[in-house]
Design a binder for these strands. Sequence first.
DNA 1: GCATAAGCGAGACGGTACGTCCCGTCTTACA
DNA 2: TGTAAGACGGGACGTACCGTCTCGCTTATGC
Lengths: 182, 182, 182, 182
Amino acid sequence: MSDNSARPRGGRPRRAGVGAAVRQAAEELIAERGYAGTTLDLIAQRAGVAKTTVYRRWRSKSHLAIDTLADLLGDPPAGIDLLSPITWLAAQVREPSVRRLLVGLVGEAGQDESVRAELRARIREPFTRHLVDEFGLSAPDVDLAFDVVVGALLHRLAMTGELTDTDALAVTDLATRLVFGR
Amino acid sequence: MSDNSARPRGGRPRRAGVGAAVRQAAEELIAERGYAGTTLDLIAQRAGVAKTTVYRRWRSKSHLAIDTLADLLGDPPAGIDLLSPITWLAAQVREPSVRRLLVGLVGEAGQDESVRAELRARIREPFTRHLVDEFGLSAPDVDLAFDVVVGALLHRLAMTGELTDTDALAVTDLATRLVFGR
Amino acid sequence: MSDNSARPRGGRPRRAGVGAAVRQAAEELIAERGYAGTTLDLIAQRAGVAKTTVYRRWRSKSHLAIDTLADLLGDPPAGIDLLSPITWLAAQVREPSVRRLLVGLVGEAGQDESVRAELRARIREPFTRHLVDEFGLSAPDVDLAFDVVVGALLHRLAMTGELTDTDALAVTDLATRLVFGR
Amino acid sequence: MSDNSARPRGGRPRRAGVGAAVRQAAEELIAERGYAGTTLDLIAQRAGVAKTTVYRRWRSKSHLAIDTLADLLGDPPAGIDLLSPITWLAAQVREPSVRRLLVGLVGEAGQDESVRAELRARIREPFTRHLVDEFGLSAPDVDLAFDVVVGALLHRLAMTGELTDTDALAVTDLATRLVFGR
DNA sequence: GCATAAGCGAGACGGTACGTCCCGTCTTACA
DNA sequence: TGTAAGACGGGACGTACCGTCTCGCTTATGC
């Protein structure tokens, strides 16, 4: 939800709304043209902001993407049953913007430990913490379930370009059994 | 296993060994420096070949990578039990060169249908066909198992940068249950 | 008018008509697309001949072009007055194919002495010899007149892209005065 | 004399000296290796500048060459007699760097109207304007004289590779008679 | 009639340059 | 200190064309 808003002392304050506008632009463009097809110049332009401003707030394109994705995902729904957060996760992956962000970021993660760390902290951990707190599950199990759901669906997408309800259901089932049945 | 070796008639025949040398160079370099960090110029140079020669045989870096990967994977082992091909698959994904090729290709697949098609035909289909023929399983189930194993492991790698035996085992179990237990 | 037809002994004789067809193709293509825009592959293709065949007969694109140009120019007209060969020369330069061949060759000549030599022997010398023999003029004077006419007109073309009657006339006058009035 | 120095508002100003360094490098390299033998990479490297910087300031190699040439030529000398500017022009053409630039540009001009236009505006027009203003001559006559001098000398160079004093003198005479004697 | 010699079509190959693209950094002026 | 604007270095991309090469096949001559 944030760039790195801790800007305590002197100088001109940051212009409000810039963070949101940039994330919004990034989300739209990546949904339209994919991660690699989206330029930082393009994002800045659509957000009505200078490229410098973007780089002052985010270290790199990847880090902006992670922030955008985290913002987009929001929190898993509070509910009584275990099924709903997992189903929610699968539904999120089916959103074009989420999917294309994830695919791009998985690619970058291979090259850059800081991306991996950020991805864990901002994307997976909130989900895991939610299930651990809510249902008393073991964190490693939930992490694994997360990786199975997201990874399997993403990989299916990479293979076929689309994702049927049946696929999504099968994978959610599997993940549920994983955390539940052991 | 091949570029497009069907060169029936006239003209100077393709120099033997070039295909293998280029794939070899691609494999090594991608293992060393990752997919994105590997240049076609570099591959050509290490293979002792002109860049134009590479582009004459493969449409793009992605297509060369798929060919390299297919060559590298080879066929799943013939065995009596169902477990061994799935275990074999997980083991393959743990190989650095296979993994980095896969990660790069999953990224490209998002942008390019022809990459997806080739990926299905050259990478997943041989595996699926093997299990269908050998054990009489349903193709969609095996496809899904493939996507679960490869996707989940790749995603874990993207999140943590490494892959423990425990992770691999858990995922293989899951996939086995998937094809077996239904 | 010739490639290098002296092929005394054994072996399969050269196919008749190839020389003419290639020159014809070269002339047409260069007239259409300019010297630099014309590929040897293209010429060979239009002539219905393999590229190898072209290179067996001509050392390079430049040498083919010189041969084509010499063929195209033919001999200056026999006439009683001195004016007509010079007017003829100016008229030739105004032909698109001649002009574009010349422009291309002047460019190449800067790089390659063998092109210069060939250009002298095949293009300028026939003209000069004609005027020397016919009218008893001095060879250096005629050479200079040639360079003035061709050079000035070509340069005007390079500057404006076209050549009016007035321009052509003024330059022919000048050249005539040059050889005549001294 | 300049790239397109009109950079009125905002943004990082262009690094001073880059224009001059690039033109200098281009001049030297073209004098050494000819127009076609000179790469933009090479020019950029010798100028200590990235290739992209060169392309940001000049549309193409040709346009850089025109700019370099204009800079190199400077203005014709102010003098009392008509002879001196024409002699000066002939002397300039005999300079290796000027000559090789001109030869290359004449070749490019055939392919590209924008090169022709730039050549007229930056190279010929300053010369013509000078003679028109200074001696009240007619612009078309001076243009023609320019084309005769430069064209004839360049063409002689293309034919023989060198240029004697006698040649230069003969052509200057001719051009002088042209503007003077009518 | 069969060896020898060259021509030819087809297309692979090495090499070199091109002009474009995008990232992330920088340098100004102004707010 | 933030911001707009845009220059800059660096590096890869995929394309184009040249002139050479290597095959298999064809067509002549000379023994």
